[in-house]
Simulated assay, not measured.
Amino acid sequence: MSSNGSTSMASVCSGILSMMDAGVPIKAPVSGIAMGLATDGNGKAIILSDIQGIEDFAGDMDFKVVGTTRGITALQMDIKVKGISPDLMAKALQQAKTGRAKILEHMLSTLPEPRPELSPYAPRIEKLMVNPEKIGAIIGKGGETINKITAETGAEIDIKDDGLVTISAVEHEAIQKALEWVKSLVEEPEVGKVYEGKVVKIMEFGAFVNIMPGIDGMVHISQLSDQRVEKVTDVVKEGDIVRVKLVAIDDRGRLNLSIKEAKA
């Protein structure tokens, strides 16, 4: 394959159309054009629009201009002369504006706006900030946890030192599953919230329930039921899955849970 024009500007235009076709909600479409310059060495200069390969090779300038209908978003220039005058620069920019508008008009005649739904083949990206102290919970010992998440969901996970977690996947279900998994690992206990947890230990005065990875709270015997409870095991046993409400976190960080209030 070969090209007789600016491949970078073709990439800009085709890339925008591809994103619009994929349903990416861009702020505004852009178009690009490559401008050239031909001089005779005696002060005469001509600005060229949408230069071809030979004009780039033999000419004195390759000036790429990209932008929306509202203005320029990117510029890049290569020149073979010592410089160009402000007048020539102004002319090149104005000529590029006319060219960009014409190109953009043709692009929008093909696809006037992004498609309303994201393509099923478009990669999805979700980001969330977590407490940097929780990064270890996501990674796990020797990377065990993060490897398990990526293996079971098919999503890719990148974690920055400041706590920014980026999750990407092609399928929406994969990214949602990975996102919920990560959230469950870094979630902080919230007073007043009802959790579903597993009874992990029985004591005479109550039961300990695991409500999050690595986080247990205690249900006092008085909070097991609306009725008087003689023995904890009359209501719950180890391994039971129960709904509990986090009623308080004491000054030592201990979680006080209630099965009774979770039913209210």
Rank of each mutant, 00 (worst) to 15 (best):
S3W: 03
M20S: 03
M20K: 01
G23R: 04
G23C: 12
P29K: 09
S49K: 10
D50T: 06
A58W: 09
M61Q: 11
V81F: 01
K82I: 00
A90G: 15
G99P: 04
E113C: 09
P116C: 05
E117V: 10
L118Y: 03
S119H: 11
Y121M: 11
E126H: 13
M129I: 10
V130G: 07
V130S: 07
K134G: 10
G136S: 15
G140C: 14
G143W: 05
T145M: 12
E152C: 05
G154D: 10
E156D: 14
I157V: 15
I157E: 06
D161Y: 00
D162Y: 11
G163S: 06
T166M: 07
H172T: 11
E173K: 15
E180M: 11
W181N: 10
V182Y: 07
E187D: 13
G192H: 04
Y195L: 08
E196W: 00
G206W: 02
I211V: 14
D226M: 11
Q227D: 13
E230C: 01
T233K: 08
R243H: 06
V244P: 02
L246S: 12
L246M: 12
V247L: 09
V247S: 14
A248L: 00
N256W: 01
S258R: 02
I259S: 09
A264R: 12
